[in-house]
Design a protein around this nucleic acid. Structure first.
Ligand code: FES
Ligand code: FES
Lengths: 145, 145
DNA sequence: TAAATAAAAGATGTTTTTGTCCTTTATTGC
DNA sequence: GCAATAAAGGACAAAAACATCTTTTATTTA
């Protein structure tokens, strides 16, 4: 409902990579997809985008894989969502009018606007690193056991 | 982001029909689609669903068309959304885990749960008739001029 | 330098969503 | 009863989302 599959897998993959930040090796696509229960080739494509956008780092070749530095872990979740879904997704009209506007609002505008604001602050108020920390603490999960 | 196209067109169509409730004639698909700026045949399909579910009434033949009675206008918006999107849409995990659960929550669970609750109360707290009224008052719109 | 490895890139395939078109059925007015 | 009308239903088509497979490129290590 809220996110596309692309976005869901992208978030889960990034959070898993971040959660392995303290490891001394880089994380391969096979391990990532096992741990987040996501389709391998599809997720590889998504990680290509995230890498291109600088949200995740990667290295080819032997002992290569994906990894994230402190700066990348401190990016708010909204950066990843916008990289994947585009920046307009968070400002469009809830009923699909050509634009969301105060001058010609749809009948859901007032209530929807508030919700959209809540979503934006959720995505701005949490970093990939924050989410990774929850994982490490064992207080949250990226797949159901 | 929030609704599918099917749902968006469905809501707009239903609200328009409700807004014409005081008219003494039934509303044809052609008029509806002009007024809400939606694809004609696709919207006709959606109205078939809404009619089948009893959210909207219809009559075939000469001077036929779509209409709604008071009871239908008093249905909360969530009834329409659930008829179109299914009832699970509002309870699934924001990150796409197989289930949303308190025992094995995703890293977004706490914040997302609150938003989902807001969405549910938005959809429960407004009826098709309420939305139609806004339209009649001229304080909201189903397409941009 | 050669072999092994792992991501990048690109081609291709499947499924779902979105959208159109044509035929059938029910209803009305003459 | 008959013609006109409008929704219902079903078949089909296009586009987007989701997913897989193969080849290429970069890197490491022996
Ligand atoms: S106009 Fe529809 S959400 Fe603002
Ligand atoms: S577990 Fe993800 S939203 Fe509840």
């Amino acid at each position: 409902m809220l996110f596309s599959k692309t976005c869901e897998y992208g978030i889960r993959a990034a959070v898993y990579i971040a959660s392995q930040h303290d490891k001394d090796y880089k994380i391969g696509i096979t391990e990532i997809c096992e741990k987040i229960e996501a389709p391998r080739h599809f997720t590889a494509k998504i990680l290509q985008i995230l890498t291109r956008e600088g949200l995740v780092s990667s290295q080819k070749g032997v002992n290569g894989g994906f990894f994230m530095d402190e700066e990348q872990m401190n990016r708010p979740l909204i950066a990843l969502v916008e990289a994947v879904e585009g920046t307009e997704a968070l400002s469009r009209c809830g009923l699909g009018l050509r634009a969301c506007s105060e001058k010609e609002p749809c009948p859901l505008h007032n209530k929807y606007k508030a919700i959209r604001t809540n979503i934006a602050s959720m995505l701005t108020g949490i970093t990939i690193g924050d989410m990774a920390k929850k994982l490490q603490k064992g207080s949250s999960f990226l797949k159901i056991a």
